[in-house]
Amino acid sequence: MSSPTRTAFRFLLAALPALWLLPSQAAQLVRVGAAHFPPYTVRPEMGADTGLLPQLVEALNVAQHDYQFVLVPTSIPRRFGDFKQGRVDMAIFENPDWGWKDIPHVTVDMGLEDAEIFVAQQLPDRQQDYFAELAGKRLALFSGYHYEFANFDADPKILAQRYNASLTYSHDSNLLMVLRGRADIALVTRSYLSDYLLRNAKVAAQLLVSQRVDQVYHHYAMLRPAAPISGEAFGKLLQGLRESGQMMKIFAPYQIAVVPVPGD
Results as ranks from 00 to 15, higher is better:
Met1Glu: 01
Ala8Val: 11
Arg10Ile: 12
Leu13Arg: 06
Ala15Met: 12
Trp20Arg: 08
Leu22Pro: 06
Gln25Asp: 08
Ala27Lys: 04
Gln28Trp: 09
Leu29Cys: 09
Arg31Pro: 02
Val32Glu: 13
Gly33Lys: 05
Ala34Arg: 07
Pro39Ser: 10
Tyr40Asn: 07
Thr41Gly: 08
Arg43Pro: 10
Pro44Gln: 13
Gly47Ile: 02
Gly51Val: 06
Leu53Gly: 04
Val57His: 03
Asn61Met: 04
Val62Leu: 13
Ala63Ile: 08
Ala63Met: 14
Gln64Gly: 15
His65Tyr: 13
His65Leu: 14
Asp66Tyr: 03
Gln68Asn: 15
Gln68Trp: 13
Phe69Leu: 08
Val72Ala: 06
Thr74Asn: 06
Thr74Cys: 11
Pro77Phe: 03
Arg78Glu: 05
Arg79Leu: 14
Phe80Asn: 07
Phe83Val: 05
Met90Tyr: 09
Phe93Asn: 05
Pro96Ser: 09
Pro96Lys: 10
Lys101Glu: 12
Val108Ala: 03
Val108Ile: 09
Gly111Arg: 04
Glu113Gln: 15
Glu113Lys: 15
Ala115Glu: 14
Ala120Ile: 04
Gln121Phe: 01
Gln122Ser: 13
Leu123Asp: 04
Pro124Gln: 01
Asp125Met: 05
Tyr130Ala: 06
Phe131Glu: 09
Ala135Tyr: 01
Ala135Thr: 10
Lys137Arg: 08
Asn151Arg: 11
Asp153Cys: 02
Asp153Asn: 15
Asp155Arg: 07
Leu159Trp: 06
Ala160His: 06
Gln161Gly: 10
Gln161Val: 13
Arg162Lys: 14
Asn164Glu: 13
Ala165Arg: 04
Ser173Leu: 05
Leu175Pro: 00
Met177Asn: 01
Leu179Thr: 02
Arg180Gln: 03
Arg182Asn: 05
Ala183Tyr: 01
Leu187Gln: 07
Arg190Glu: 10
Asp195Tyr: 11
Tyr196Arg: 01
Leu198Thr: 14
Arg199Met: 12
Ala201Gly: 05
Lys202Gln: 14
Ala205Glu: 15
Gln206Glu: 11
Leu207Pro: 01
Ser210Trp: 02
Gln211Ala: 11
Gln211Cys: 01
Gln211Pro: 03
Gln215Gly: 04
Tyr217Glu: 15
Tyr220Val: 09
Ala221Leu: 14
Leu223Tyr: 06
Pro225Lys: 04
Pro225Tyr: 05
Ala226Pro: 03
Ser230Phe: 05
Glu232Ser: 07
Gln239Thr: 13
Gln239Gly: 15
Gly240Lys: 10
Leu241His: 07
Arg242Trp: 04
Glu243Trp: 00
Ser244Arg: 00
Gly245Arg: 01
Gln246Lys: 11
Gln255Phe: 11
Pro260Glu: 13
